[in-house]
Design a protein around this nucleic acid. Sequence first.
RNA 1: GCCCCCGUAGCUCAGCUGGAUAGAGCGUCGGACUUCUAAUCCGAGGGUCGCAGGUUCGAAUCCUGCCGGGGGCGCCA
Length: 551
Amino acid sequence: MSPTTTETGLRETVLALAGELAGGADVRQAITLERPPRADFGDYSTNAALLLAPAAGAPPRELAQQLGDALVARLGEQLERFEVAGPGFLNLFLADGWHRAALAEVLAAGESFGRGEALRPERIIVEFVSANPTGPMHVGHARNAAYGDALARVLAFHGHQVEREFYVNDAGSQVRKLGESIRALARGEKVPEDGYHGDYVPGLVAGLANAASMHPAELGRAAVNIMIGQMQGSLSAFRVQNFDHWAFESKLHEGAPSPVDHALALLEQQGHTYRSEGALWLRTTDYGDDKDRVLVRSSGEHTYFASDIAYHQDKRERGFDRQIDVWGADHHGYVARMKAAYEALGGDSEHLEMLIMQLVHLVRRGERAQMSKRAGEFVTLEDLLREIGVDAARWFLLSRSHDTTIDLDLDLAREQSSENPVYYVQYAHARTASMLVKAGAERVERALQSVGEDGEPLDSAERTLIKKLLAFPGEVREAAARRAPHRIATYALELAQQFTAFYRDCRVLGADRSQIGQPALESQRLALCVASRQTIARALDLLGVDAPGEM
RNA sequence: GCCCCCGUAGCUCAGCUGGAUAGAGCGUCGGACUUCUAAUCCGAGGGUCGCAGGUUCGAAUCCUGCCGGGGGCGCCA
C-alpha cells in the first residue's frame, strides 16, 4: 500500500475504500480527489459518494459518512476530522502530522519528486521545428521550438523514453530556387520573381566563394548547410535541447530502393494506389480523407506527400511506440491525409499524433507585424531573443495552450519585462536560494534530518504551501498526458505565489522560539524552503527557463 | 461549401474526459520600503463564461443549432 501522505497515495486510499463500499462498481476514473475552492471545505474533498450512490443503492450522504468513517480507521490521527457536505461531498481535514509526513515524502524523493509516474512508459519520437532551411526561423518556429522542447522534457520527466528529431526539407524545388537567388545576387543580377528576397540572402552569398559559377542545385545545397548551422546556433541560444536526429528529406530519395520507393511499393502491394491522368494516387478516402492524393505527379516527380509518407514509415520501422509531430497551423489540413496514409501502411493512427500550433501574432506599436519569408520582412527568432530575452520569450510562448492563438505585444513585453510573471517565479526561487545560503549547510542539514517530526503547529501558509508542492506530480502527469506543458507554467506561478505568501507570513531564519530539545521552528521552515526551491527549479527546468540563485 | 482551432474581467490568457460562491497576470484605484532579496507585498473594483436549446442531482466544461474571429481545403513545400 502506497503511503497516504502523498496526493496520489491519498487518492488511492480513497479509491480502495470507496471500492469496498460500492461492491466493485467501476467509477474509479470519475472519482476525484481535489483541493476544494474554499478553505472551510477542508484540505481535500472527494465526490466518490455521489458517483457510487446509484450502484450502491444508498443515499450519497450516507455513503459519504461511511467512507469518512473508513478513512478515520485507516488514517488515524492524521485525519483530524471529516464533513459530509452538500449533495454528498466528503471533505477531509488533515492534521499537521499528515502535512509533516507529506513534506518528508517530498524531500525524500529529492530531485526525483514528480518524476516517472507513467503507467505505461512508451518510446516516443517528437518531431518539431522542422523549419524549411531556406531562411531564418521566425516567431512561429520559436513557438513550435519552445513547445516541442518543453513537451519532450515533460514526457521524459514523466517516464517516457523520448527522442527529438528535426526533419529537414532539403529536396524540393525550393532549394534550387534558393540557389538561383544566390547566384543571381552573386552575379549582380536581379533575384527571380519567385526567388528569395530576404535580407539574409546577401549574407549567404558572402559565405559561398564560388557562388557566381555554381549550379543552382549545388549552390542551394551549400546554402542549406549554412542555414542549418545558423538554425542550430539559434536553437541553442533559445535553450532548445540538442536534437537526437536530423532527418534529411533528400536521404529518403537515395538508395535502391530508396525509402520513398519502399513506402510506395508497400502501398501498391496493399492495393491502395491507382493511376489516373498520368499520376499515381493514394486512395486516402478509404481512411477518412476528403479526397484522394497524388503520390507521383504525371511529370514523374514525387510529391512532398510521398516523401512524408516514407518519412513516417521510416520512423515506424525504427520501432517507436508513438510518433508526435508538432506542426504549424498552416499544416492542419494535412493531418487527415497523413493519418490515412499511415493506416494504409498498416499503422495504427492512434499512435500518430499531429499537434497543431496556432499562430503567434506579434504586435508592434499597436499593429500586427507581418511575417512573410518572400516579402523578407519578418521577426526572426534572433530578433525575439534580442528584444525580450530567452526566459521571457519561452515563458510567453509556453504559458498558453498550443491550440490558442497568441497576441504578443513586443513593446509591452519589453517595457514591462521587469513585471513579467516569469521574473516573479524566478524571484521566488532566488529568495529560497538566498535564504538557504544564508542559513548555511549545517542548519539546512539539521532541518532535513528532523523533517517529519512533531513541532510547532503549522501556519496556514505552511499547510497551503505543502499542499501546493504535493500537487506537482499530478501536474506533471496531466501536462504529459494532455501534451500541455503550459500547465507547468500555470503551476509554477501558483507555487511561487504560495511560496511568497509563506515568506510573508512565516519568518524563517531565526524563527526558533521553541524549547531546547524540541525540533526547531526554523528547521521546519527551512525544510519547506528546500522543497520549494527544488520544485520551483524543476518546474522552470521543464519549461527551459533559468532558475537563478540570485537576481 | 467542407474541415480544424478559438470566443471566459478593460487587455492577454488559465480553468474544459461535469462538481460547491468561475481564476491569474497586466492595466485601474488605494495602501506598505530601518527587507530572511521591494525585480516585492497588501487591499479594492471589475463577469449575461458569444447566443439559444438539450442531457444531468449539478454545465464555462458534454450534445445540437446559430453568431463572430482565425486557419486550412494544389499533380506547392
